[in-house]
Protein backbone atom coordinates (compact mmCIF):
# COMPACT_ATOMS: atom_id res chain seq x y z
CA UNK A 1 0.00 0.00 0.00
CA UNK A 2 2.86 2.31 0.83
CA UNK A 3 4.47 1.69 -2.53
CA UNK A 4 1.13 2.31 -4.19
CA UNK A 5 0.77 5.68 -2.51
CA UNK A 6 4.29 6.75 -3.52
CA UNK A 7 3.54 5.70 -7.08
CA UNK A 8 0.38 7.81 -7.03
CA UNK A 9 2.30 10.73 -5.59
CA UNK A 10 4.90 10.47 -8.36
CA UNK A 11 2.29 10.39 -11.12
CA UNK A 12 0.47 13.29 -9.48
CA UNK A 13 3.69 15.30 -9.36
CA UNK A 14 4.22 14.64 -13.08
CA UNK A 15 0.69 15.89 -13.71
CA UNK A 16 1.40 18.98 -11.59
CA UNK A 17 4.40 19.80 -13.78
CA UNK A 18 2.23 19.43 -16.88
CA UNK A 19 -0.58 21.46 -15.32
CA UNK A 20 1.80 24.28 -14.35
CA UNK A 21 2.88 24.57 -17.97
CA UNK A 22 -0.67 24.59 -19.30
CA UNK A 23 -1.74 27.06 -16.63
CA UNK A 24 0.99 29.43 -17.74
CA UNK A 25 -0.20 29.08 -21.32
CA UNK A 26 -3.95 29.14 -20.89
CA UNK A 27 -4.58 30.49 -17.41
CA UNK A 28 -2.18 33.40 -17.63
CA UNK A 29 -1.84 34.07 -21.35
CA UNK A 30 -5.03 32.69 -22.87
CA UNK A 31 -3.31 30.31 -25.29
CA UNK A 32 -5.67 27.42 -25.99
CA UNK A 33 -3.14 24.61 -26.27
CA UNK A 34 -4.85 21.32 -27.11
CA UNK A 35 -1.55 19.62 -27.89
CA UNK A 36 0.22 19.67 -24.54
CA UNK A 37 0.77 15.90 -24.65
CA UNK A 38 2.85 16.38 -27.81
CA UNK A 39 5.61 18.13 -25.86
CA UNK A 40 5.32 15.53 -23.09
CA UNK A 41 5.82 12.86 -25.76
CA UNK A 42 8.83 14.65 -27.31
CA UNK A 43 10.45 14.87 -23.87
CA UNK A 44 9.83 11.20 -23.08
CA UNK A 45 11.12 9.92 -26.41
CA UNK A 46 14.14 12.24 -26.43
CA UNK A 47 15.51 10.92 -23.17
CA UNK A 48 14.50 7.32 -23.92
CA UNK A 49 16.27 7.27 -27.29
CA UNK A 50 19.34 9.05 -25.98
CA UNK A 51 19.56 6.64 -23.04
CA UNK A 52 19.36 3.70 -25.46
CA UNK A 53 22.52 5.08 -27.04
CA UNK A 54 24.27 5.38 -23.72
CA UNK A 55 23.87 9.11 -23.20
CA UNK A 56 23.92 9.80 -19.44
CA UNK A 57 20.79 11.09 -17.73
CA UNK A 58 22.35 14.42 -16.76
CA UNK A 59 22.60 15.17 -20.48
CA UNK A 60 19.44 13.53 -21.80
CA UNK A 61 17.22 15.15 -19.17
CA UNK A 62 17.90 18.78 -20.05
CA UNK A 63 17.88 17.82 -23.73
CA UNK A 64 14.34 16.47 -23.30
CA UNK A 65 13.21 19.94 -22.21
CA UNK A 66 15.30 21.67 -24.87
CA UNK A 67 13.93 19.49 -27.67
CA UNK A 68 10.36 20.09 -26.51
CA UNK A 69 11.14 23.82 -26.69
CA UNK A 70 12.67 23.36 -30.11
CA UNK A 71 9.37 21.86 -31.28
CA UNK A 72 7.26 24.56 -29.65
CA UNK A 73 9.15 27.49 -31.14
CA UNK A 74 8.48 26.87 -34.85
CA UNK A 75 4.93 25.76 -34.02
CA UNK A 76 4.40 29.10 -32.31
CA UNK A 77 6.10 31.01 -35.08
CA UNK A 78 3.77 29.70 -37.78
CA UNK A 79 0.51 29.41 -35.86
CA UNK A 80 0.36 31.63 -32.76
CA UNK A 81 -1.14 34.51 -34.74
CA UNK A 82 -4.16 32.39 -35.61
CA UNK A 83 -7.40 33.03 -33.78
CA UNK A 84 -7.40 31.07 -30.54
CA UNK A 85 -9.82 28.36 -31.68
CA UNK A 86 -7.77 27.74 -34.82
CA UNK A 87 -4.61 27.53 -32.77
CA UNK A 88 -6.35 24.96 -30.58
CA UNK A 89 -6.94 22.76 -33.65
CA UNK A 90 -3.39 23.23 -34.95
CA UNK A 91 -1.90 22.31 -31.58
CA UNK A 92 -4.10 19.23 -31.33
CA UNK A 93 -2.94 18.27 -34.82
CA UNK A 94 0.66 18.84 -33.77
CA UNK A 95 0.40 16.42 -30.86
CA UNK A 96 -1.20 13.81 -33.10
CA UNK A 97 1.57 14.25 -35.67
CA UNK A 98 4.14 13.68 -32.93
CA UNK A 99 2.34 10.52 -31.84
CA UNK A 100 1.99 9.24 -35.40
CA UNK A 101 5.66 9.84 -36.09
CA UNK A 102 6.47 7.90 -32.93
CA UNK A 103 4.23 5.12 -34.25
CA UNK A 104 5.60 4.98 -37.80
CA UNK A 105 9.30 5.79 -37.59
CA UNK A 106 10.27 2.39 -36.28
CA UNK A 107 14.03 2.87 -36.85
CA UNK A 108 13.94 5.65 -34.28
CA UNK A 109 11.14 4.85 -31.88
CA UNK A 110 10.57 1.12 -32.34
CA UNK A 111 7.00 1.89 -33.45
CA UNK A 112 4.02 0.48 -31.59
CA UNK A 113 6.21 -1.88 -29.59
CA UNK A 114 7.66 1.16 -27.91
CA UNK A 115 10.93 1.48 -26.05
CA UNK A 116 11.45 -0.80 -23.09
CA UNK A 117 14.18 -0.98 -20.50
CA UNK A 118 14.63 2.76 -20.14
CA UNK A 119 17.09 3.11 -17.25
CA UNK A 120 15.51 3.97 -13.93
CA UNK A 121 16.45 7.20 -12.22
CA UNK A 122 19.13 6.82 -9.56
CA UNK A 123 19.72 3.23 -10.71
CA UNK A 124 22.95 1.91 -9.30
CA UNK A 125 22.74 4.16 -6.25
CA UNK A 126 19.34 3.37 -4.86
CA UNK A 127 16.85 0.52 -5.05
CA UNK A 128 13.32 -0.25 -3.90
CA UNK A 129 11.39 2.33 -1.91
CA UNK A 130 14.41 4.61 -1.48
CA UNK A 131 14.57 4.96 -5.25
CA UNK A 132 10.90 5.90 -5.44
CA UNK A 133 11.34 8.45 -2.70
CA UNK A 134 14.28 9.93 -4.58
CA UNK A 135 12.21 10.21 -7.78
CA UNK A 136 9.46 11.90 -5.81
CA UNK A 137 12.03 14.22 -4.26
CA UNK A 138 13.38 15.12 -7.69
CA UNK A 139 9.87 15.87 -8.92
CA UNK A 140 9.11 18.00 -5.88
CA UNK A 141 12.31 19.92 -6.59
CA UNK A 142 11.37 20.42 -10.27
CA UNK A 143 7.90 21.56 -9.28
CA UNK A 144 9.24 23.90 -6.63
CA UNK A 145 11.61 25.47 -9.15
CA UNK A 146 8.82 25.76 -11.70
CA UNK A 147 6.54 27.41 -9.14
CA UNK A 148 9.25 29.85 -8.07
CA UNK A 149 9.90 30.78 -11.69
CA UNK A 150 6.18 31.15 -12.28
CA UNK A 151 5.78 33.45 -9.27
CA UNK A 152 8.64 35.56 -10.52
CA UNK A 153 7.01 35.78 -13.93
CA UNK A 154 3.55 36.62 -12.57
CA UNK A 155 4.95 39.53 -10.56
CA UNK A 156 7.05 40.90 -13.41
CA UNK A 157 6.11 43.31 -16.20
CA UNK A 158 6.26 40.25 -18.48
CA UNK A 159 3.58 38.61 -16.35
CA UNK A 160 1.47 41.76 -16.46
CA UNK A 161 1.74 41.85 -20.24
CA UNK A 162 0.74 38.20 -20.77
CA UNK A 163 -2.31 38.74 -18.55
CA UNK A 164 -3.13 41.84 -20.57
CA UNK A 165 -2.88 39.69 -23.71
CA UNK A 166 -5.25 37.16 -22.17
CA UNK A 167 -7.73 39.93 -21.36
CA UNK A 168 -7.57 41.77 -24.67
CA UNK A 169 -5.11 41.14 -27.43
CA UNK A 170 -6.31 43.95 -29.73
CA UNK A 171 -5.81 46.51 -26.99
CA UNK A 172 -2.24 45.29 -26.52
CA UNK A 173 -1.60 45.85 -30.22
CA UNK A 174 -3.15 49.31 -29.96
CA UNK A 175 -0.51 50.15 -27.34
CA UNK A 176 2.28 49.24 -29.75
CA UNK A 177 3.22 45.87 -28.28
CA UNK A 178 3.26 42.64 -30.24
CA UNK A 179 1.28 39.86 -28.50
CA UNK A 180 2.77 37.16 -30.73
CA UNK A 181 6.28 37.53 -29.33
CA UNK A 182 5.05 37.10 -25.76
CA UNK A 183 2.81 34.18 -26.65
CA UNK A 184 5.60 32.30 -28.41
CA UNK A 185 7.82 32.64 -25.35
CA UNK A 186 5.03 31.34 -23.14
CA UNK A 187 4.35 28.43 -25.48
CA UNK A 188 8.03 27.50 -25.41
CA UNK A 189 8.25 27.75 -21.62
CA UNK A 190 5.17 25.58 -21.11
CA UNK A 191 6.59 23.06 -23.56
CA UNK A 192 9.83 22.92 -21.57
CA UNK A 193 7.88 21.92 -18.46
CA UNK A 194 5.95 19.29 -20.42
CA UNK A 195 9.19 17.96 -21.91
CA UNK A 196 10.74 17.69 -18.48
CA UNK A 197 7.63 15.92 -17.18
CA UNK A 198 7.92 13.50 -20.12
CA UNK A 199 11.54 12.76 -19.27
CA UNK A 200 10.76 11.92 -15.64
CA UNK A 201 7.80 9.84 -16.76
CA UNK A 202 9.86 7.80 -19.24
CA UNK A 203 12.53 6.96 -16.68
CA UNK A 204 10.05 6.28 -13.94
CA UNK A 205 7.77 3.93 -15.92
CA UNK A 206 10.75 2.45 -17.82
CA UNK A 207 8.67 1.78 -20.92
CA UNK A 208 7.07 4.14 -23.41
CA UNK A 209 4.91 3.54 -26.45
CA UNK A 210 2.86 5.87 -28.66
CA UNK A 211 -0.46 4.87 -27.07
CA UNK A 212 0.61 6.50 -23.81
CA UNK A 213 0.51 9.88 -25.53
CA UNK A 214 -3.08 10.10 -26.69
CA UNK A 215 -4.89 13.48 -26.71
CA UNK A 216 -6.74 12.17 -23.65
CA UNK A 217 -3.71 13.16 -21.56
CA UNK A 218 -3.99 16.75 -22.79
CA UNK A 219 -7.64 16.87 -21.82
CA UNK A 220 -6.96 15.37 -18.41
CA UNK A 221 -4.55 18.23 -17.76
CA UNK A 222 -7.19 20.66 -18.94
CA UNK A 223 -9.62 19.07 -16.48
CA UNK A 224 -7.03 19.45 -13.75
CA UNK A 225 -6.58 23.19 -14.27
CA UNK A 226 -10.30 23.78 -14.73
CA UNK A 227 -11.12 21.93 -11.50
CA UNK A 228 -8.24 23.54 -9.65
CA UNK A 229 -8.80 27.09 -10.84
CA UNK A 230 -7.64 28.58 -14.12
CA UNK A 231 -4.88 31.19 -13.89
CA UNK A 232 -3.88 30.18 -10.39
CA UNK A 233 -0.61 28.45 -9.63
CA UNK A 234 -2.23 26.78 -6.62
CA UNK A 235 -5.01 25.71 -8.97
CA UNK A 236 -2.57 23.61 -11.02
CA UNK A 237 -1.38 21.90 -7.84
CA UNK A 238 -4.79 21.26 -6.36
CA UNK A 239 -6.32 20.39 -9.74
CA UNK A 240 -3.74 17.70 -10.49
CA UNK A 241 -4.46 16.32 -7.01
CA UNK A 242 -8.21 16.17 -7.58
CA UNK A 243 -7.73 14.62 -11.01
CA UNK A 244 -5.63 11.85 -9.50
CA UNK A 245 -8.14 11.40 -6.71
CA UNK A 246 -10.85 10.78 -9.27
CA UNK A 247 -8.74 8.67 -11.63
CA UNK A 248 -7.34 6.49 -8.87
CA UNK A 249 -10.20 6.73 -6.38
CA UNK A 250 -12.63 5.41 -8.96
CA UNK A 251 -10.47 2.26 -8.99
CA UNK A 252 -12.12 1.40 -5.71
CA UNK A 253 -15.61 1.95 -7.06
CA UNK A 254 -15.71 -1.75 -7.73
CA UNK A 255 -15.74 -2.47 -4.03
CA UNK A 256 -19.10 -0.74 -3.79
CA UNK A 257 -20.31 -1.73 -7.24
CA UNK A 258 -19.29 -5.39 -7.63
CA UNK A 259 -21.85 -5.90 -10.40
CA UNK A 260 -19.69 -3.92 -12.86
CA UNK A 261 -17.30 -6.04 -14.88
CA UNK A 262 -13.56 -5.39 -15.00
CA UNK A 263 -13.85 -4.32 -18.63
CA UNK A 264 -16.61 -1.78 -18.15
CA UNK A 265 -14.83 -0.37 -15.12
CA UNK A 266 -12.39 1.64 -17.28
CA UNK A 267 -15.31 3.42 -18.91
CA UNK A 268 -17.04 3.94 -15.58
CA UNK A 269 -13.90 5.63 -14.24
CA UNK A 270 -13.76 7.99 -17.20
CA UNK A 271 -17.44 8.63 -16.65
CA UNK A 272 -16.73 9.61 -13.05
CA UNK A 273 -14.12 12.14 -14.15
CA UNK A 274 -16.50 13.49 -16.77
CA UNK A 275 -19.27 13.79 -14.20
CA UNK A 276 -16.92 15.62 -11.84
CA UNK A 277 -16.04 18.06 -14.61
CA UNK A 278 -19.71 18.69 -15.37
CA UNK A 279 -20.48 19.26 -11.70
CA UNK A 280 -17.53 21.61 -11.39
CA UNK A 281 -18.57 23.71 -14.37
CA UNK A 282 -22.12 23.84 -13.02
CA UNK A 283 -21.48 24.57 -9.38
CA UNK A 284 -17.96 25.90 -9.18
CA UNK A 285 -16.94 27.23 -12.60
CA UNK A 286 -14.07 29.18 -11.08
CA UNK A 287 -12.45 25.94 -9.85
CA UNK A 288 -11.59 24.97 -6.31
CA UNK A 289 -8.98 27.68 -5.79
CA UNK A 290 -10.92 30.38 -7.62
CA UNK A 291 -9.93 31.63 -11.05
CA UNK A 292 -7.71 34.49 -12.12
CA UNK A 293 -10.36 37.10 -11.34
CA UNK A 294 -8.30 38.15 -8.36
CA UNK A 295 -4.72 37.41 -7.45
Amino acid sequence: MDAYLIAIAIITAIYVLLALGLNLQYGLTGIVNFGHVGFFCVGAYTTAILSEHGVPLVVSFPLAAVLAMAFAWPLGLVSIRLREDYFAIVSLGFSEVVRLVATSERWLTNGVQGIAGIPKLFAGWLTGPAQSYAVLGLLVAFNALAILAMLRIVRSPFGRMIEAIRDNEEAVKALGKDPAGFKIQVLVLGAALAGLAGAVYAHYIGYISPEQFLPLITFQIWMAIIMGGVGRISGALVGAGILMLFLEGSRFLRDVMPFISEVSMASVRLGVVGLALILFTMYRPQGLMGDFTRK
Binding site: R152, S156, M161, E163, A164, D167, L175
Partner: peptide, 27 residues
Protein backbone atom coordinates in the same frame (compact mmCIF):
# COMPACT_ATOMS: atom_id res chain seq x y z
CA UNK B 1 -11.09 47.14 -24.29
CA UNK B 2 -9.76 47.34 -20.78
CA UNK B 3 -7.56 44.57 -19.39
CA UNK B 4 -10.43 43.47 -17.21
CA UNK B 5 -8.56 41.37 -14.65
CA UNK B 6 -5.77 43.88 -14.18
CA UNK B 7 -6.28 46.82 -11.86
CA UNK B 8 -6.55 50.33 -13.26
CA UNK B 9 -2.97 50.92 -12.16
CA UNK B 10 -1.75 47.73 -13.84
CA UNK B 11 -3.63 48.70 -17.01
CA UNK B 12 -1.62 51.91 -17.11
CA UNK B 13 1.67 50.25 -16.21
CA UNK B 14 1.22 47.71 -18.98
CA UNK B 15 1.02 50.53 -21.51
CA UNK B 16 4.42 52.04 -20.73
CA UNK B 17 6.79 51.47 -23.66
CA UNK B 18 10.25 49.91 -23.66
CA UNK B 19 10.10 48.02 -20.36
CA UNK B 20 13.06 45.69 -19.96
CA UNK B 21 10.98 43.72 -17.44
CA UNK B 22 8.90 42.55 -20.36
CA UNK B 23 11.89 40.48 -21.42
CA UNK B 24 12.16 37.22 -19.49
CA UNK B 25 15.91 37.31 -19.49
CA UNK B 26 15.96 40.69 -17.72
CA UNK B 27 13.22 39.59 -15.32
Amino acid sequence: REFSHLTVRENLLAAAPGQSGERLIDT
